[in-house]
C-alpha cells in the first residue's frame, strides 16, 4: 500500500514537474512575443488539465508536496490570467462579428420568442471592429489625469453599470458633486475594474457588486453589495460592505472602513449605508485554510488616509497627491 502510494507520488511528481516547466517556458514565449488568444488558449487547456490531475492527486500526495505544486500552479494561473487580460480586446471583438451571422440556434428545441426577437436586434455588420461597445458607463485609457463623473463616456441615465479600465497615475473621483453640477441621483448597478495602476479611486456606495482585476499600487474607496478582487497587489481598500469581501490571487492588500467624509445622504441604497461594514471579514480564496491569510491585513490607523486628506478637488497636483497616498510611494 505504502509502496503504491510512493510510486504514485513519484510518478505524479515527475510528470507534473515536467509539465510545469514546459508551461512556464510557453508562457515566457507568449510574453516575449505577442499574446494571441490561440496560444493562450492552448496553455489554458494544459493548465486546466494539470489542475484536474492535481485535484485527483490530493488523495495520495503528502501535504507538503501538495502545497508546493499548488503554489506553482497558482503562479502559472495568475500569469495566464494577466496574459488573458492583455489579449482580451481580440476576444471581445470576435463575438461581435459572429453576432452578425444570425445563425439559428442548433438546439433541438424550437427557438423561443425571446431568442428570436433578441437575435433580430443583433447589431448590423461592421467591417472593422472599433471600440468595444458597452452601453453602460465607462472610463478607460487615461494617464496622469484627474477624472470625475463628467469624464464618463456616455450620456447619463439614472442606473447603469460602470466600467473602469486601463488607468495609470490617475485620481478618479466619482463622488456626486454637492454643487449640483452632476446628477445626484445616479446609481451604479455594478462595477467592473481592470488593469489599473498607481491610481486613487474614490467611488460612491453603489447598489450592486464590484468585480476587480489587475490592480497594482492603488487606493480604492467604495461601497458595494459584494467585493471581489482578483490578481492584484499593493492595494488599500476602504470599503463599506455587508457581505464578505473576497480576494483571489492577490497580495499585500490592506482593508479599512469606508471613510465617513465620503458618505452622501443615502438616496437609494439604504441597505448598504445603514448596515455596519464587514470590511475585515475578508475571505482569501487562494488561502482556504485555518491559518490567517498572508495576502491581506487590516490597514493600520496611522497609515490610513485621514478624512480631510481625500483629494476631492480637481485643482490638486495629481502627482503630488499620488506620491503621498499610494501604498507604495517609491
Amino acid at each position: 500500500m505504502s509502496e503504491t502510494n510512493q510510486e504514485l507520488t513519484q510518478q505524479y511528481y515527475a510528470r507534473t514537474k515536467a509539465a510545469i516547466s514546459e508551461l512556464t517556458s510557453q508562457l515566457e514565449a507568449i510574453k516575449s512575443g505577442s499574446a494571441t488568444s490561440d496560444s493562450i488558449q492552448k496553455v489554458a487547456v494544459e493548465l486546466a488539465k494539470l489542475r484536474k490531475e492535481h485535484t485527483d492527486a490530493i488523495a495520495f500526495l503528502p501535504g507538503y508536496d501538495q502545497r508546493q505544486v499548488d503554489k506553482q500552479l497558482e503562479g502559472l494561473e495568475s500569469q495566464l490570467e494577466s496574459l488573458r487580460t492583455a489579449a482580451a480586446p481580440k476576444a471581445k471583438f470576435a463575438f461581435k462579428r459572429k453576432a452578425t451571422k444570425a445563425a439559428p440556434p442548433a438546439s433541438t428545441t424550437p427557438a423561443t420568442a425571446s431568442e428570436q426577437s433578441t437575435s433580430a436586434a443583433a447589431p448590423p455588420p461592421t467591417g472593422q471592429p472599433s471600440a468595444v461597445h458597452t452601453s453602460g458607463l465607462s472610463i478607460s485609457g487615461h494617464t496622469n489625469s484627474y477624472l470625475t463623473l463628467s469624464s464618463l463616456s456616455s450620456p447619463w441615465s439614472s442606473a447603469s453599470d460602470l466600467t473602469i479600465s486601463d488607468l495609470d497615475n490617475c485620481i478618479v473621483n466619482f463622488i456626486p458633486d454637492s454643487n449640483g453640477n452632476i446628477p445626484h441621483d445616479v446609481t451604479f448597478t455594478a462595477l467592473h475594474a481592470r488593469n489599473i495602476s498607481n491610481t486613487v479611486l474614490i467611488l460612491p456606495i453603489i447598489s450592486g457588486s464590484a468585480l476587480l482585476h489587475d490592480l497594482k499600487n492603488c487606493v480604492i474607496a467604495l461601497g458595494s453589495r459584494q467585493f471581489r478582487m482578483h490578481t492584484s497587489s499593493e492595494v488599500d481598500v476602504y470599503i463599506s460592505i455587508a457581505s464578505n469581501p473576497i480576494i483571489e490571487h492577490c497580495s499585500a492588500i490592506r482593508f479599512a472602513d469606508y471613510p465617513s467624509s465620503l458618505r452622501r445622504p443615502p438616496a437609494h441604497d439604504s441597505i448598504t449605508t445603514q448596515t455596519k461594514s464587514n470590511y475585515l471579514a475578508v475571505q482569501d480564496f487562494s488561502h482556504i485554510r485555518a491559518t490567517p491569510s498572508p495576502n491581506w491585513s487590516a490597514l493600520p490607523e496611522e497609515a490610513a488616509i485621514r478624512d480631510d486628506q481625500w483629494p476631492l478637488s480637481n485643482s490638486v497636483d495629481v502627482q503630488a497627491v499620488l506620491s503621498q497616498l499610494l501604498p507604495s510611494r517609491g
Partner: peptide, 24 residues
Amino acid sequence: IQGSMSSAEIRDALDLPSIKTHQW
C-alpha cells in the same frame, strides 16, 4: 442592468450553436 448583453449576443459569444451533445 443597463448595458448588459442580450441573450442573442451571449448565445454567439458562448458559441452555443456549436453544442451538439446536449439539449440546450
